[in-house]
Design a protein around this nucleic acid. Structure first.
Lengths: 160, 160
DNA sequence: GATAAGTAGTTGAAGGTTCAACGTCTTGGC
DNA sequence: GCCAAGACGTTGAACCTTCAACTACTTATC
């Protein structure tokens, strides 16, 4: 970090620095590892999340925009991704009768099979890579901390 | 999440689920927000980290591979990124005399100016978006948790 | 000291993501 | 009803990342 003191910047002290660095490194590695673990099932994390969201939805279908929101994807990104997932046969699109601008993403039986076969391994991987490092108390306090953070971001989401 | 019980998958219980979801959502938003905050200085997070690492190195220069490791970038990605950063005038490359395969990434005065002007705002943004949500004790326990996670990933880094 | 194996770094192609612009439809105000 | 403003979703272009292949050099082994 360069030093400078135009308005006396308030650099991170060693404790803060360590917290921040360990967080940033571990969180990247975590995402990487989860993605790798999923690769065996030919799924990426975003694809998995889209399928997981659909699998929980009534009739396994959901409006594009809702899906984008849940999956933390921009509309555009979801749209591009859907083209690929549709080609893979996991989902299809269906016009929405009540709003003619809208579409439903609908999970196909093949998509269902894909997520059913990937889910146990993915959950296992979330445990192994994340939850297993946390005691019950850690889990509770992480939840508090990150909910607070999440709350703070509410309203300025950049994936619309 | 679909249900299935081939080998009785051990789904997440509500506490685990909440910890996991809040973590994954907040951590994505955090990265997004930090990137946005940096945008005003025409830097992305990876660029910032590369410059920050260089600015701390002796002579503000560093071997490409070391830089890649610190910045959590693959060699290839760093190489591509360097081309851009070089064009922007922040860094240049310099052959390594002792190992003729190797290169140094060297920070230019312009690069120094860029990071000096971005750093205070970035640090402020790390505080605002992350550290401010954490008490001293939270910081310490996060550090313990994520160091442990980081440790577990050691050796299977996919950015070589 | 020759050779095999490994390391440093780059490259191009394939694929993913973002951004701004667009067409289509809905909604609210008059 | 009409019109402006907004929401839904898609598109293409620009950009970024990954992956595998490659060159050039170094190291280890014999």
């Amino acid at each position: 970090m360069p030093e400078q003191n135009a308005t006396v910047p308030n650099w991170l002290n060693p404790v803060e620095m360590k917290a921040w660095r360990s967080y940033i490194i571990a969180s990247r590695r975590l995402l990487e590892a989860l993605d790798n673990d999923l690769e065996g099932h030919d799924l990426s994390m975003p694809d998995y999340e889209v399928l997981a969201a659909l699998s929980d939805a009534p009739d396994r279908k959901m409006r594009m925009s809702e899906l984008a929101e849940i999956g933390l994807l921009s509309r555009s990104r979801l749209s591009h991704r859907m083209k690929v997932m549709e080609k893979a046969g996991w989902v299809k699109r269906e016009a929405c009768p009540s709003d003619k601008r809208g579409y439903f993403a609908v999970m196909t039986p093949k998509g269902w099979k894909a997520i059913v076969s990937a889910a146990p391994a993915h959950v296992e991987s979330v445990r192994l890579r994340f939850l297993d490092h946390l005691s019950k108390e850690d889990q509770a306090s992480l939840f508090v901390i990150f909910s607070r953070m999440e709350e703070a971001f509410r309203g300025e989401s950049s994936c619309e």
